[in-house]
């Protein structure tokens, strides 16, 4: 449904492209995306949602190139993007206003927008958060509210940029449950292998400007006990 075709992207003021000859299609339901810091994962998301324009190649939604303002609007209605930093995502004074912001912009009358917002918060277990001040929430609460602001627009695809950053184990497993329960297509950037093994079925890696699909057996759960075993870690003797 969403596809990047032969895309090359170079940040202005730099001479090396971050991504080149990139082909990527959101075909599967649960896609994990890994890659070293600075490899271009966030850049790929920005290209997928039209925040950045490729030097070459094109962005297709349902096979149609996204070029005009209208197609861009349609794209952004279908695709929700959870930022790496929730502080950049929440801008209204209260939680309810922030969650209702999207529906209001989509043309829902205020009463309906409020209803949608309340329902979305309820589904995420955030009932009672409506009148809380967004900038006084904890990091984990901010992340969940940020997710609510996106889900309230009822997108079909979710782009999640390092959603487990700064989450404690409890909130993290709550997020896993939430994501598993959602019907949307999901592409998740994460350095948290265990999280990816729970939430995704297919893994892509970005390296040296290219994206490639990882081996099927790359995603696996390893159950064993050691200190901080639930944190992302590498094994000395790899399988």
């Amino acid at each position: 449904m969403l596809e990047l075709k032969n895309v090359r992207y170079t940040y202005p003021g730099t001479d090396q492209p971050i991504l080149k000859n990139l082909n990527f299609e959101v075909a599967d339901k649960r896609i994990g995306l890994i890659g070293a810091n600075g490899s271009g994962k966030t850049t790929l998301f920005h290209l997928l949602i039209g925040l950045l324009n490729p030097d070459e190649g094109e962005l297709l939604l349902h096979g149609q190139p996204v070029t005009t303002k209208e197609t861009l609007r349609a794209l952004r209605k279908e695709v929700g993007f959870l930022f790496q930093s929730s502080d950049d995502q929440l801008f209204s004074p209260t939680v309810i206003e922030d969650v209702a912001f999207g529906p209001l912009n989509l043309g829902f009358p205020p009463e309906e927008a409020r209803e949608i917002a309340v329902k979305t918060l309820h589904n995420l277990g955030l009932t009672g958060f409506e009148e809380r001040i967004t900038h006084r929430l904890s990091g984990g609460e901010k992340k969940l509210v940020a997710l609510a602001t996106i889900l309230s627009m009822q997108p079909k695809i979710l782009l999640l940029d390092e959603p487990t950053n700064n989450l404690d184990p409890k909130t993290r497993s709550r997020l896993i449950d939430i994501l598993k329960g959602l019907d949307q297509h999901q592409i998740i950037i994460s350095h948290d292998w265990d999280f990816l093994s729970h939430t995704t079925t297919i893994l892509y890696e970005i390296a040296h400007g290219h994206i490639h699909r990882c081996e099927e057996d790359h995603v696996h759960v390893h159950r064993h006990v050691h200190k901080a075993g639930d944190h992302p870690h590498h094994h000395q003797h790899s399988s």
Partner: peptide, 22 residues
């Protein structure tokens, strides 16, 4: 930061008009 917040608003369908909830 301002441009990131602006991006967040655009992604949520903002088109130059703030609509109050009530």
């Amino acid at each position: 930061r301002a441009s990131r917040v602006h991006q967040a608003m655009l992604l949520r369908g903002f088109n130059g008009q703030l609509i109050p909830l009530d």
